[in-house]
């Protein structure tokens, strides 16, 4: 854990303090204290229903879309609690982008898929350049450069997911949240997405939820393991450098989980 406490910049991209998230009266996750390093990949793993996706959505206030959900505790982003009353979720979501489990491009052209987010956020530069840059960063440019006018839905699943990543990058977020981005894809597309995530690490802080432990072990720098308590609330079991967590887990539950004995 020592490695976590010191940070090169002395600053974390996101930090939670005693975060509890409720759906109505039900507490979905409890007492989460986590710090995420800038420009690193952090994986959130754990059995189904342990609340890792809920934790992820807390960082861009996507949980707000569930009318009954509410949050206790604090989530710091640039020293500001995201859940303060004067914080506008619209601004949060522009600065903390999100890629979803199932590829969900807009039923628009490939070009518009990338350009739309930039347009509504008031981007003033050259749109063609931005679209090309974003698609290049998402490693999709070479495949789609001749058919930017075609529907985003005409692409294959893996291409659609990279289009969604390009769309997210186009609004220049600081953090990219990924909710099992490869779980709906075939192994080759999954590999391409993983490579892409490694590339994106240069510029972005990435937090990724995954069910796939090999994926977490392969591609992340840090891993947080969550589990479900007896009251069905998710809690953080262990948070460590990925190598350490997978080779010498401190907690017995972690060891059982990564060796496939439950979950």
């Amino acid at each position: 854990m020592t490695d976590l406490v010191e940070n090169h910049n002395g600053k974390y991209a996101v930090e939670t303090r005693d975060m509890n998230i409720y759906y109505g009266a039900f507490r979905a996750v409890k007492d989460i204290n986590l710090q995420f390093k800038a420009r690193r990949i952090t994986a959130l793993i754990g059995p189904s229903g342990c609340g890792k996706s809920t934790v992820l959505r807390a960082f861009n206030r996507m949980n707000d879309l569930v009318p009954t959900s509410w949050l206790e505790g604090e989530v710091f982003f640039h020293g500001k609690n995201l859940y303060d009353n004067d914080v506008d979720p619209v601004e949060v979501r522009r600065r903390v982008g999100m890629v979803f489990q199932k590829p969900n491009p807009f039923p628009k052209t490939i070009y518009d898929n990338v350009a739309w987010g930039a347009k509504i956020n008031g981007y003033k530069g050259d749109m063609d350049i931005l679209v090309e840059q974003s698609l290049r960063q998402a490693a999709l440019w070479d495949e789609v450069k001749d058919k930017l006018g075609q529907s985003g839905l005409s692409l294959s699943g893996g291409q659609q997911q990279r289009l969604c990543i390009a769309r997210t990058i186009a609004v220049k977020p600081e953090i990219i949240l990924m909710d099992e981005p490869a779980s709906a894809l075939d192994p080759i597309s999954t590999l391409r997405i993983e490579e892409l995530i490694q590339d994106l690490k240069k510029d972005y802080t990435i937090i990724i939820v995954t069910h796939n432990m090999q994926q977490a072990a392969r591609s992340s720098d840090f891993t947080a393991f969550f589990n479900m308590d007896d009251d069905r609330a998710g809690y953080l079991v262990e948070y460590s450098v990925t190598n350490e967590l997978f080779t010498s887990p401190q907690n017995e539950l972690t060891e059982q989980y990564i060796t496939g004995r439950f979950g």
């Binding site: 601004e91 979501r93 522009r94 982008g97 979803f100 199932k102 969900n104 769309r167």
Partner: peptide
């Protein structure tokens, strides 16, 4: 998923 995609990009 469309609404989420749009809101996730910072759309109102």
């Amino acid at each position: 998923s469309l609404r989420k995609a749009s809101l996730g990009l910072g759309a109102t």
